[in-house]
Design a protein around this nucleic acid. Structure first.
Length: 199
DNA sequence: CCACTGATTTCCT
DNA sequence: GGAAATCAGTGGA
């Protein structure tokens, strides 16, 4: 069943990032359904996290949506090239977000292959936040989209994960964040080949 | 296997 | 002007 708003408005973004593992992310564009199981996430904790775009209460046109109440999408362009998909969590004004870095594709694989210009499903179809967005057809038109709507949403299919099955480590690509780069806020499914990087 | 690099736009200094 | 929550390709060991 589709996750409701109260899943996203919880106040512990690190916990929400963990809970998103094993859930299913879907997009539906003009009847084209694509999606898969979330296997890798990272937590970004609002204004006190040096790696977060909203660090020090920064407000720009890009970051404005981060202050919204949980349950909407934050999509932004990185390296001038890739649209990264984030889930806004917590209450209004908190600016917490979860970056979804990888899914294991299950739905609409043919369509995802077309979008990625690939012939055979391989991990680089959806393993990594940039390529995952391409495969799912996510771009900045989804900025602020409610995850309780019917364009982009997340479902709980009752997959139960044990604590031993979840790996924890520092976040990727944020070395500029000083000591906050060491925080163990990246979560992935141990041994899953659709995770963007090993170890 | 690893290190390095180009692509390209948004935002900050 | 420079760096950025990335990726694919190249070339060398």
């Amino acid at each position: 069943m589709k996750l409701k708003k109260d899943f996203y408005t919880r106040t512990d973004v690190v916990q929400v990032a963990q809970d998103l593992l094993g859930k299913y992310l879907y997009t539906n564009h003009d009847g084209l359904l694509t999606g898969g199981m979330i296997v890798e996430t990272e937590a970004y904790s609002g204004t006190n996290d040096k790696a977060c775009h909203a660090h020090m209460n920064r407000r720009t046109r890009r970051t404005e949506i981060m202050y919204h109440e949980g349950g909407v999408a934050y999509v932004y362009l990185v390296y001038g090239m890739y649209n990264l998909f984030n889930i806004i969590t917590n209450v209004e004004g908190s600016a917490d977000a979860v970056l979804v870095r990888a899914i294991e594709p299950t739905e609409g694989i043919e369509e995802m292959l077309l979008r990625r210009n690939m012939v055979t499903p391989k991990p680089n179809l959806t393993a990594g936040p940039g390529v995952m967005s391409i495969a799912l057809g996510i771009d900045r038109s989804h900025y602020g989209a409610p995850l309780t709507g019917d364009t982009i949403w997340i479902e709980d299919k009752g997959i139960a994960l044990s604590a031993e099955g979840i790996a924890v480590g520092p976040r990727i690509g944020i070395d500029y964040a000083g000591e906050d780069a060491l925080l163990p806020w990246r979560f992935w499914l141990k041994g899953n080949k659709w995770v963007s990087r090993k170890k």
